[in-house]
Design a protein around this nucleic acid. Structure first.
Length: 292
DNA sequence: ACCTCGACCTGGGCGC
DNA sequence: TGCGCCCAGGTCGAGG
């Protein structure tokens, strides 16, 4: 599910609810996604902690509490939803970009593995069908030294992501450009959807060697990466199946995808049938005429 | 350093 | 209704 735009949408939608809230207790129904420390220690260390800042680097959410930092990676189907029992589940909300929507937040079900409960009866639920997500808790003074943190590459929506950074990171690699862009230690946040979209807009095939892009292509790719990510955020993320934001609303970016998942259909640029191939181990959709 | 493959999970869609 | 197969937003480790 979640690539940078989806994770950012979750972060932004939790922002009005979490900061200032104190954790009453953590309910662990299935400890599978808790990778560090163990479930018991996590429960003990979270109790009484108050949420401060909510940050994000790439696909990683970083929740800063008093003395602890909670890392949450949503994997493929992770959902973090804030639930207020006083709010009706049938409520409609008009989203600025995604339009009128009914909340889709789930009651606790068999996939709701963790719940952070707050004193006023509200809760932050973690639901994850495939359980590829991960929760990790580190002390505030230690998180920056962990491999999980240090492995994160440059977030493409920060000022660190410059044209030179992209160009330098591509020139020495002979890997397919798509594989390089999916490397989270280089650029943190791109996944299968947004890479296919960015490469299409840049006019570059996913299988092209990274070092073989010329300056003009790199320039287009740089702009395309930022554009597709910003558009994704503006549209509230891409909901193909499971994605929901922190309040249980779907995104609408799936309606604006140009090539992702559209192999076999006509290219929106030239009408050619979009190809399908596997690059970097991932199914890719691209146009043999528009992308060189 | 690279690549490909399978593993980790559950469920949806499709053909029969 | 059921079964078998393929597919899925993401990593991660083994083996070549």
């Amino acid at each position: 599910m979640p690539e940078l735009p989806e994770v950012e949408t979750v972060r932004a939608s939790l922002l009005p609810h979490l900061p200032g809230r104190r954790v009453d207790r953590l309910v662990v129904r299935d400890p599978y996604v808790i990778k560090h420390p163990g479930a018991d220690e996590l429960t003990r260390r979270l109790r009484g902690q108050t949420f401060q800042r909510l940050e994000r680097t790439g696909k990683m959410l970083l929740f800063f509490l008093d003395d602890e930092v909670l890392f949450v990676h949503l994997g493929m189907t992770g959902q973090l939803t804030f639930r207020d029992p006083r709010r009706a589940d049938t409520e409609f909300i008009r989203h600025q970009h995604t339009g009128l929507q009914r909340t889709l937040q789930h009651p606790v079900d068999k996939h709701t593995h963790l719940s952070l409960e707050f004193p006023d009866g509200t809760a932050l639920h973690y639901r994850d069908i495939r359980k590829f997500g991960r929760w990790r808790l580190f002390k505030s003074g230690e998180y920056a030294l962990t491999p999980e943190f240090r492995r994160l590459g440059v977030d493409p929506l920060t000022e660190k992501f410059t044209l030179d950074y992209l160009a330098d990171g591509l020139k020495d690699s002979k890997r397919p450009i798509k594989a390089r862009l999916l490397d989270q230690s280089f650029i943190a946040g791109l996944g299968n959807i947004y890479v296919d979209e960015a490469l299409f807009r840049a006019g570059v095939r996913p299988g092209r060697g990274s070092h073989r892009l010329n300056r003009k292509q790199i320039g287009r790719l740089y702009l395309a990466i930022r554009e597709v990510l910003l558009k994704g955020i503006e549209n509230g993320g891409t909901t193909l199946r499971d994605f929901l934001d922190g309040q249980g609303y779907q995104g609408s970016n799936q309606e604006r995808l140009l090539v992702y998942g559209r192999y076999g259909e006509a290219c929106p640029g030239c009408g050619e049938i979009l190809r399908r191939s596997t690059v970097g181990g991932r199914t890719s959709s691209w146009c043999a005429k528009c992308q060189v």
